[in-house]
Amino acid sequence: MMRLPWFDYRAPRTLSEAARILAGEGPNAALIAGGTDLLPNMKRRQSAPKVLVSLRRIPELKRNGAVLGAGITLTEIVRKPELPRGLRQAAAQVATVHLRNMGTIGGNLCLDTRCNYYNQNYEWRKAIDFCLKKDGDICWVATASKRCVAMSSTDCAPALLALGARVTLVSANGERELPLEELYNNDGIDYLHRRPDEILTEVHCANAPSTYWKLRRRGAFDFPVLGVAAALIDGSARLALGAVASRPFLVAKANDFLRGKQLTDDVIDEAGRIAASRAKPMDNADLDLYWRKEVTAAFVAYALRELRGDDLRETRSRIARYEPA
């Protein structure tokens, strides 16, 4: 049985108490909410924090109104029809029913980057003499790369990026709110602009027509190997991509092109072409990387056509294998 290493467990009851503990413990501490990302990593010894600070008992993180507390579970998001459809579709396609009952929106936004050379047991990583992201000094995906190319694998982030969401970070020194886009950094190791003493507490997101399309092998369990989110903001469609870089990102060139345009078939095709040129999948996840890049345009077209109002239920049920949200 895979087991966790020893750690000290702290369960603060208020946000300020949690922030104080975090400030005191520094990088030795890790936050645990749903645990679905952290605990497997700890069992595989990808990380071994000395202190776990549980966020479960902090009522502020459970706020479930216009502002979403970071501790809201993915299932709670799926079950809340007043939330944007794109976000609910993204949440509904994370992992499995069980993991969505456990995992939180905050956790999904802060999900560790993933790579086939990294998401392995200690013994396996030892057999390749480790890698840049953890305990080693070479990136086996791109051996000439100075940068870790582990892949952002969050489903909710692209959906929220397209919707123009903002997040709040709290530390013992105060709080700051920033556009979600600014939370992410295109580096597989330092993938978040979150300081170690900060807690992601809230997500602010207005409702808008939106959609999310996920490419993965199976209808359950799998992380995305491509995520395409689209939202209609101020009359213009906006696209965000996930799982094609170390961060999820708004596709600036495609969004410039889309600004003010009707979603005609030609516009959709061109947006797909532009977006696909920005997708940089690597050979560190499931399915052939060239194929993943190749189908990006098709997935962008699904997203934009659904946003336009086309009935894509048949396509959706073939790709997702069910009707998410």
């Binding site: 605990l39 549980s54 499995t96 069980h98 456990m102 369990f221």
Partner: peptide
């Protein structure tokens, strides 16, 4: 590691994976 569902139990009535719950 949360990859099979064999350890599912109900916690407050919701199915969760006991292997990833402290």
């Amino acid at each position: 590691l949360g990859e099979c569902g064999a350890c599912a139990v109900l916690i407050d009535g919701e199915p969760q994976l006991s292997c990833l719950v402290l």
